[in-house]
């Protein structure tokens, strides 16, 4: 019983370490790395449920009786592509953020935004007073 579920648990640990990186780390690139780890682990989860004991790769041949399930493979092929698409877009956002803010740390970006808002508010109030 325990051994049978062990694989699943390890995969869950992997997923959660990915999720942890996304939430806990403030560096934008690290967050994307975390997303990547998270997604890859979900792929591992899908693929490991397709496995049949004693099965082989789902490529038809004459002398084989037991094949692993091909459907999760197809789904994950699609999902991998989706993953790289997200990574590419996320990274290009990071590049632009670095150019616009001069930093790729969440805290410093948030700080700059807040500062800007305060400045704007300040300017507004002055304007109002003048009006």
């Amino acid at each position: 019983m325990l051994m049978d579920l062990f694989n699943h648990w390890v995969v869950i640990t992997l997923m959660m370490s990915g999720l942890y990186i996304v939430i806990a780390h403030g560096n934008l690139i690290k967050k994307i790395v975390g997303l990547s780890v998270f997604q890859t682990s979900v792929f591992i989860f899908y693929i490991s449920m397709a496995k049949v004991d004693g099965g082989t790769a789902p490529i038809l041949a004459d002398d084989i009786v037991q094949y692993s399930n091909p459907l999760p493979h197809v789904l994950i092929l699609t999902a991998i592509v989706v993953g790289i698409a997200t990574t590419a877009l996320g990274l290009s956002l990071v590049v632009r953020i670095k150019e616009a803010y001069g930093s790729i740390e969440e805290e410093s970006i948030q700080q700059q935004d807040n500062q800007q808002q305060d400045n704007n508010a300040h300017a507004k109030r002055k304007q109002e007073e003048e009006a």
């Binding site: 890859t40 397709a50 099965g55 082989t56 790769a57 692993s68 999760p72 994950i76 092929l77 991998i80």
Partner: peptide
């Protein structure tokens, strides 16, 4: 896990 196509892509 016998998923050769996926392995290739990954």
């Amino acid at each position: 896990m016998d998923a050769v196509d996926v392995a290739f892509t990954e």
